[in-house]
């Protein structure tokens, strides 16, 4: 796939993150280019969720640099908000606002953070609801939707902010098996449209078909990162081999 050889859209340099004495992320460096699809995999506790949560400042990294589209992610609220507008996130637990209807969930952030008018926000919302194939659910409460539908709404909600990068934190892990595909299909379509995506997931089928780069993390470090062919055919490290044996 095409890497536009400009500056990376996300640059992680020597990022470290501690929780008390425990080091969750150990000196991670990674460059991600616009349009790239990166899948991060690894055993539980390997730091992969923590890592992507640092990218939109849901976790604060303790040392190193994170630069998102030229903005240095530091303590300044302005920078943080700017970054969050460019980076959309989809959570494992969906996190749809239960007290708002589907369409209200989608309209909230564009109206408040991008100061869109009600009419504009509604148009954009319906547009993305169509994109995720559930426009008829617009006026329902989240509780009335299935898990797969809720997650698709969550994806649409993130997309309404017109982000340049989409982060996915184990998007299908909380779904019943029969609903995983409807969500993965939407993600594949998104990938085809050229969105820059970082996906933390165990769905290796998805990784193999969509990813440009697969990053394997263990104990807070990047052990190996390679395009899918290399990664699955010639894993270099013992740990990678062990992991692949366990999940494939």
């Amino acid at each position: 796939m095409d890497d536009t050889r400009q500056r990376p859209i996300i640059l992680l340099e020597n990022v470290c993150k501690f929780f008390g004495d425990f080091q969750a992320v150990k000196n991670v460096s990674l460059a991600i280019y616009q349009g790239q699809k990166v899948v991060i995999c690894g055993p539980s506790g390997s730091g992969k969720s923590t890592l992507i949560r640092c990218v939109n400042r849901l976790e604060k990294h303790d040392s190193g640099h994170i630069i998102v589209d030229g903005i240095d992610l530091d303590d300044s609220t302005r920078n943080i908000n700017e970054v969050r507008k460019k980076v959309g996130m989809v959570f494992q637990q969906f996190n749809l606002f239960p007290h708002l209807t589907v369409i209200q969930n989608l309209m909230l952030a564009p109206r408040l953070a991008r100061k869109s008018s009600k009419v504009e926000a509604r148009e954009i919302a319906m547009q993305y609801l169509e994109r995720v194939h559930i426009p008829e659910q617009a006026n329902k409460w989240p509780i009335q939707l299935s898990g797969g539908q809720q997650q698709r709404v969550a994806i649409a909600r993130a997309l309404c902010m017109k982000p340049q990068i989409m982060l996915f934190d184990e998007p299908t892990s909380a779904l019943d098996p029969e609903m995983i595909n409807e969500v993965l299909d939407v993600m594949v379509e998104l990938a085809k449209e050229g969105m820059t995506m970082i996906v933390v997931s165990h769905e290796m089928g998805f990784a193999r078909s969509v990813a440009d780069l697969i990053v394997f993390m263990d104990f807070g470090e990047i052990v190996e990162s390679n395009p899918p062919e290399e990664f699955f055919q010639n894993p270099r490290s013992e740990r990678t081999k062990l992991f692949l044996n366990q999940i494939l």
Binding site: N56, L58, N81, M89, N95, L108, R157, A158, M161
Partner: peptide, 22 residues
């Protein structure tokens, strides 16, 4: 639920916006 706060943050809502609307 803490997750709802995080969703609000991820959507670039400010602290007071999150408090009032969520």
């Amino acid at each position: 639920d803490k997750g709802l706060h995080e969703a609000g943050k991820a959507l670039a809502l400010t602290t007071s916006q999150r408090f009032i609307y969520i």
